[in-house]
Structure formats: C-alpha cells, structure tokens
Amino acid sequence: MFQKTFAWLDERLGLQTIYNTVLDRNVPKVNWWFTLGSASLFLFLLQGITGIMLSIYYVPTPDHAYDSIQYIMNGVSFGWLLRGIHHWGASLMVLIVFFHMLRTFYFGAYKYPREFTWVTGVILLFLTLGMGFTGYLLPWDQRAYWATTVGTSIAGTVPFIGNFINEVLRGGTDLSAVTLARFFSVHIWWFPALIAAFIGIHLYMVIRIGISSIPKADD
C-alpha cells in the first residue's frame, strides 16, 4: 500500500530524484568539522520555529513588550522553555555559523569554483549577526535599551553619513516606539526572508558543485 502510494507520488513529483540529488550525493571522506553547515541550518530552523512560537504572545510596543515577555516566562506553560531555546539558540547559532566560516577558510574550501558560495556565506554571517542585534532590543529591558543605544551610536561614528545611519536605524534621534517596531519587523520578516533566500542559493551551489575534500600536504 505504502509502496504503491509512494510510487504514484514519485512518478509525478520525482521524490526519489530529489532524495538522490540532495542527500545521496557523492562526498569526499570528511570529518566532523563538515557538519557545521548542517548544524547552522538546523539552528536556523529551530530559531524560526521557536521565534514563531514567541510571536504568539510577544507585543512590540514600549507599553507591552516587557510585560508580554514576563507573561511568556511566568504566565504560559513552557514559555520559559521556548524563550530559553530561542535565547541560547541565538548565541549558539552565531558561534556555529562563525566556526563554519573558519572551517571553510582554513580548509581552503572558498577557492575556485566555490567563490560565490563563500560570498553568499559571508552575507549569511552578517544577516545572522543582524538577527542577533535586532533581537537583542526586543525584550525592551535596561540591557536591551542601552545595548541598542550603544550599537546604533557605533553605527553613528561612520564619517559624514554616520548621523544619518544612526537616525535611520533608530527611526528618529532617540530610541523609541518607532525603533522597537522597526527592529521587530526586521527581526521577524526582513532578515529571516533574506536568510532563507540566501540559504537556498548557498545550498543550491553546495549540491551543484559538491563539497571540497580535506586539503592534503601537497595541495
């Protein structure tokens, strides 16, 4: 029964071909350092799921942001767990993505013909850091407020256009409801959409070109 259903679907969707291309492709003999990319993808999905969960109760306004998080932590079953996973997962994701970059760099995997994979990877690294920066403001407590004040001020030190960048980031001269709303929007819509798109391109190239082997002494 299952076999027949699968065969019927496979004939129309090419499931076996997808499986063979994506998961059963040939890879050189590699080690555990080569799992960091999959780990990054897993963490992105985990952050996505827990983030969607948090958005059920979180409200991005100065009046309610802090209180709605208190409600998540104390008022709802397992809210502490989902927020905890999102919180620690964020730090872990920055760490893992960074190690993924280091591995690629030290193993020389960014070289021809994989330069463009590297470029999309760099964009993904910056987007991940951007997710960390925008997400840090959302709890709207003292730490979040002043960390964002400092962070946007640093962006303000750019010569000539610094003040302009600073005010665009904040949506005004000071941190306000406008800042919180735009950081929230960027955190849950703009950056995740961009990350998903770039992961798509990144993975397409990994599958198309294949992964590089561990460099040898005479390479």
Binding site: L46, T50, M53, I56, G75, V76, S77, F78, I85
Partner: peptide
C-alpha cells in the same frame, strides 16, 4: 521535546 511543550504553550491560556 519541543513539540509537546509547544502544544501546552499554545493552549494553556484557554485553561487559566
């Protein structure tokens, strides 16, 4: 580990 708590998370306000 994530799915079961997530269900509780989603429905618990209804029972408070």
């Amino acid at each position: 580990l994530i799915g079961i708590p997530a269900i509780g998370y989603l429905i618990s306000p209804a029972f408070q």
